[in-house]
């Protein structure tokens, strides 16, 4: 039972990070291969605060999320201002994520590549569920706000959006910071759940997993990525018997999704819309 519980908690923690990336990728249309680094920043900041300075857990979590947001400004301001092509942006943020990991590996306070053991495990299922529910609520309201609508407009057509008066740089930066804050929160919860963190846990592979959940779940959807991330966490656990082969299957799955169902599980729709009466499908330019 404990085992299943811990899988559920892990999946929910992962869902929070995926939710953040979904705002950035699924709704603003920018791809990131470095968001695991923001999870890492959140994890390390909050863990260091509770571990060395015995800061209360909620404040440490908030600090971790805030730190991730601030760090995202460091990469976001120069790259988004330069209006990089979207694939160049993905490579730039990949480089940033890797550089951040190397820095984490070489600081004294993070205990280097050996990792930080013995963090108090404050994260319980209710805490995670509250964070996740709050996260979904905030994301939903954010996407319905002026800013969220501006994000979606940029995804559909940056040039037309700019013509309509959307400020590209500011809106994209806001979306990046919001997504990084989600990732930071997820990192803080992760650190206080596993009670051990290591820089290796926040590499390009993890960034890809986050992005894969967003893509597999479907762009422009909140529920799709959440379902996909749950499956991505739970499925490998169910396949534990086949230890070595699960990552093989995972890689294959990514390729198959891209080849056969690029719109993902719930592309541009929500779970709740399945239960509503069918409205006329809006005409959409297929990518």
């Amino acid at each position: 039972m404990d085992y299943i519980l811990s899988i559920v908690v892990l999946a929910c923690i992962n869902m929070i990070a995926v939710l953040g990336l979904s705002i950035f990728t699924g709704f603003t249309g920018l791809f990131s291969l470095g968001h695991a680094a923001f999870v890492g920043v959140g994890a390390y900041t909050s863990a260091i605060l509770t571990y060395y300075y015995s800061v209360p857990f909620p404040f440490a979590l908030a600090a971790g999320a805030a730190a991730a947001g601030v760090v995202s400004l460091v990469i976001g301001i120069p790259t988004l201002r330069a209006k990089l092509r979207s694939d160049y942006f993905a490579i730039a943020i990949l480089g940033f994520g890797e550089a951040l990991r190397v820095i984490l590996e070489n600081l004294d306070i993070t205990n280097g590549a050996r990792g930080l053991p013995g963090i108090d495990s404050f994260t319980t299922l209710p805490v995670v569920l509250i964070c996740l529910a709050g996260g979904v609520l905030v994301a939903r309201n954010f996407l319905r706000s002026r800013w969220g609508v501006a994000c979606i407009a940029i995804r559909e057509d940056p040039i037309a959006a700019e013509m309509a008066g959307v400020r590209l740089f500011r809106t994209r930066l806001l979306s990046l910071v919001v997504s990084a804050v989600y990732c930071g929160l997820s990192g803080g919860l992760l650190a206080h759940f596993l009670s051990f963190i290591q820089p290796v846990m926040f590499t390009l592979l993890q960034s890809t997993q986050l992005l894969a959940a967003v893509i597999a779940g479907g762009m422009g959807s909140i529920s799709g990525p959440l379902i996909a991330s749950f499956v991505f966490i739970a499925l490998p656990e169910a396949l534990r018997v086949a230890q070595m082969w699960r990552l093989v299957a995972y890689g294959l799955l990514l390729v198959l999704i891209m080849v056969y169902r690029p719109q993902g599980l719930m592309g541009y729709s929500e779970l709740s819309s399945l239960f509503r009466r069918k409205k006329a499908e809006p005409v959409r330019r297929q990518p």
Binding site: I215, G251, L252, L254, V255, P287
Partner: peptide
């Protein structure tokens, strides 16, 4: 498809091949 889909497919290939060797 947009080039980012190709990138993700490529990433999938990398993960697949590497772990196949493992």
């Amino acid at each position: 498809a947009p080039s980012l889909y190709l990138m993700i497919s490529a990433m999938g290939c990398a993960v697949f091949l590497e772990n196949l060797v493992y």
